[in-house]
Nucleic acid binder design. Structure first.
Length: 236
DNA sequence: TACCAGGTCCTCG
DNA sequence: CGAGGACATGGT
C-alpha cells in the first residue's frame, strides 16, 4: 500500500466516516446519498462560496438565515438585490463579495440552464470544471468542492488544511495542481474515497494538526509524519 | 489584543 | 510564476 493510502487508512480508522458535505443543516456520516434534490445541490454550491476563508460555523449561520427566509434557491438569489442578500449572509464575512459571487452563479444558472442547477452539474467533469472556474469568485477549491460534493464527481479537493498537513508530513508539492495529482494518482478514482479523505483531513487540521501548537502526541499520522517525529524527539 | 477560519481576485516585479 | 493586499465576521 502506498503512503497516501496509508494516510487515508490511519485517518479513517481513527476518526471514522465524516458524512460530508453538511446538508439540510447537519452531517450524514456513512450516508452517501446526498445531495438528494436540486435544492440540496444548490445548498452545497452556495455553501462552498459562503465558506471561503471562513469558519464553517459562520457560513452555516448564513445558510440557516437564507433557509429561514426562503432564499436558499437559484431563483431567489438571482433576482434578489445584492445588498439585501449581503445583509442576510453577514455572518459569513466578506459579505459584499460573497453576495456578488452568489448572484453571478445564480444568474449563470438562470441564463444558461433555465435555473436548473442539476443540468449544470450533469455536464462532463472537465468541461464543468472549466465553466465553474470562468465565473468570478469560483477558484480551484470552490470549483472542486462543487464537483465533488454537489455533482459527485471524483475530483480531489485541496484546501489550506490539506496543504499544511502534507507539508508537515514531508511532501514538497506546493501548487494546487501538484497536490491534487499526488492524491488522485495514488488513490482509486472513487468519489466516496475522495469525499471521506478530504473531510478527514479537515477534521485532523481543525483539531490536531492545527496551525499553531499542533497536538502531535495524539496524531494518528505521527508514525508517517516527518514533522511529528522531529517534534516528539525534541520533547524528550 | 491579536490571530485564526473548509479562498479568490487584483496588482506588481 | 509568487508575493502582498483587500475583502469582514465571530470565536478564543
Amino acid at each position: 500500500m502506498n503512503r497516501i493510502k496509508r494516510i487515508y487508512k490511519a485517518l479513517h480508522s481513527s476518526f471514522g466516516p465524516q458524512g460530508w458535505w453538511p446538508v439540510a443543516g447537519r452531517y450524514h456520516p456513512g450516508d452517501y446519498s446526498y445531495p438528494k434534490t436540486p435544492q440540496q445541490q444548490w445548498e452545497i454550491v452556495a455553501g462552498a462560496i459562503l465558506a471561503q476563508n471562513t469558519s464553517w460555523k459562520n457560513a452555516a449561520a448564513a445558510i440557516g438565515e437564507l433557509r429561514r427566509k426562503r432564499k436558499l434557491t437559484v431563483a431567489a438569489m438571482a433576482k434578489m438585490p445584492q445588498q439585501k442578500l449581503a445583509a442576510m449572509i453577514r455572518s459569513s464575512g466578506y459579505y459584499n463579495e460573497k453576495a456578488k459571487k452568489l448572484k453571478i452563479v445564480a444568474k449563470h444558472v438562470i441564463d444558461n440552464y433555465d435555473g436548473k442547477i442539476q443540468r449544470l452539474l450533469k455536464k462532463r467533469t472537465q468541461q464543468l470544471r472549466k465553466e465553474l472556474l470562468s465565473l468570478h469568485g469560483i477558484g480551484p477549491e470552490t470549483a472542486d468542492s462543487i464537483l465533488l460534493y454537489a455533482a459527485r464527481k471524483p475530483v480531489f479537493v485541496i484546501d489550506a488544511y490539506t496543504r499544511r498537513i502534507m507539508q508537515r508530513i514531508g511532501y514538497d508539492q506546493h501548487s494546487y495542481e501538484e497536490l491534487q495529482q499526488l492524491f488522485e494518482r495514488n488513490l482509486s478514482r472513487s468519489e466516496k474515497i475522495y469525499n471521506e479523505f478530504h473531510a478527514l483531513l479537515v477534521e485532523l487540521g481543525k483539531n490536531t494538526c492545527t496551525k499553531n501548537n499542533p497536538e502531535c502526541r495524539n496524531c494518528p499520522l505521527l508514525p508517517l509524519c516527518s514533522h511529528g517525529k522531529s517534534v516528539m524527539k525534541q520533547k524528550v
